[in-house]
Amino acid sequence: MTRYTLYIAVALWLAILAGLKLLVRPPMPASVLMIYMTLSTLGILVFVAANEERFGNFIAPLRAVFEGRAPRLVQVLVLAGIPLLLAWGAWLRTAPSSDAPFEPRVVHPEPPASFALHGRRIETAGLKNPLRVPDAAQLEKNTAEGKVIYYRNCFFCHGDTLRGDGHFSGAFSPIPANFRDVGTISMLQESFVFWRVSTGGLGLPRSATPWNSAMPVWQTMLTEEEIWKAILYIYAGSGSTPRTWEEEPKK
């Protein structure tokens, strides 16, 4: 085992790179990948160098090449390979890039303390869905009406099963929210969702790149009640429950 230390280290490094490149979706920006790979490289090197014997095993194959004990072909391959690999690495950095500039974007920005809705101010603190009533039959009726609103306004992007994969979703960037993802509505309060729906993409703060969002400013097309009903449906339809104000930690 010990004579393979170098190869195991290299294989591990390549496996980390492949994992980050191929398994992480959506793909991470090159700069983030760079940070992860630097950390991985350092981690592997620190681990190897921490033990003298391990370090000896680690550099043994390289030693064999430089001292001329390795087979001739291996010597040529390694000695030619190292400069070429470095040159190639440098070329990747200096070659003119045509990757789109990285545009950082905050996905769930801090909601404002208040916002304008149909000409009046709405306070977000403590705001609850007035249609989420205790009466089960009434709640069901409200949700059913929300479903109709959803299918006449939202499903084109957010999809039949609320996964953000409706038939227009492929043309928009950022992609429409997937309501079944635990990172979207189920970790948010209905007040947040109400703010996002009412003010749409244009209501986002600058950090969330409002100029790219295809989310309409729904208060121009729906009444306050219709928005609350649609919100009832996106929670019920996706099997999510909203976070409530009661759950908030007391400060």
Binding site: A87, G89, W91, T94
Partner: peptide
């Protein structure tokens, strides 16, 4: 310069 850097680094390593 885009060509200079890689070739320079390659020769340096060599």
């Amino acid at each position: 310069t885009a060509y200079l850097w890689p070739s320079g680094l390659g020769f340096l390593a060599l």
